[in-house]
């Protein structure tokens, strides 16, 4: 089983590297193989909104940079993990820069899914999704937005199993470990 962590931290974040390390260790303990992509280190241009990844070069973004690699890593993993500081309830700009470039993983064609319009799948299998957001301190409104956002994303990304978790910067290691374990258990094999 494979994983990829998309780390959407900003350069000056001193907390997320610790969380990232703990998530990687937990995944490896559960026999997943994979690694982390620190997105701010990568050259990823913003999506042009041109839909050429749907009609001109189907499945591949026309911008030839690391954005392509991220999309490929996403679809080729069994577990996809986003780690992001929560920005106004949503994802960080760094994470979003990569995700915007990944819509080629879907088919352009629309269909009704859960009584709403969504896209058809392009691939037969999609990764399970774990989203971990960090906040300096509890913020009920932003946490609710974040949780709903992950739920909506899953409708668009077709993950069979998913979990979302909020970790506070002043959580101690035991609490962080428990939260990570809980998140991974939801998408883990034991929960088939």
């Amino acid at each position: 089983m494979s994983y990829v962590i998309l780390n959407g931290m900003y350069k000056d974040d001193s907390f997320i590297p610790r969380v990232n390390k703990m998530v990687s260790e937990e995944l490896q303990r559960s026999n997943y193989a994979g690694d982390t992509v620190i997105l701010h280190d990568k050259e990823i241009k913003p999506c042009l909104g041109c839909f050429k990844c749907w009609v001109q070069t189907p499945g591949i973004c026309i911008i030839d940079d690391y954005g392509r690699e991220v999309a490929k890593r996403m679809i080729q993993s069994d577990v996809l993990v986003y780690i992001t500081p929560i920005n106004y309830g949503g994802y960080s700009a760094e994470l979003k820069k990569a995700l915007d470039r990944s819509i080629g993983l879907l088919s352009p064609f629309f269909r009704v899914h859960e009584k709403e319009i969504h896209h058809e799948t392009r691939y037969n299998e999609y990764p399970n999704l774990v989203v971990i957001g960090t906040l300096e301190k509890p913020n009920a409104e932003q946490e609710e937005i974040f949780t709903s956002l992950v739920k909506r994303n899953v409708l668009n990304l077709f993950s069979e199993k998913y979990s979302s978790q909020v970790i506070y910067n002043d959580d101690d290691n035991t609490t962080i470990t428990k939260k990570i374990e809980r998140s991974l258990a939801i998408v883990g094999e034991g929960n088939e």
Binding site: G49, G90, K96, N156
Partner: peptide, 12 residues
Amino acid sequence: PLYIDQAPYMTI
């Protein structure tokens, strides 16, 4: 625009 249920990278 709405990109994947929230604003695009550049708006954030």
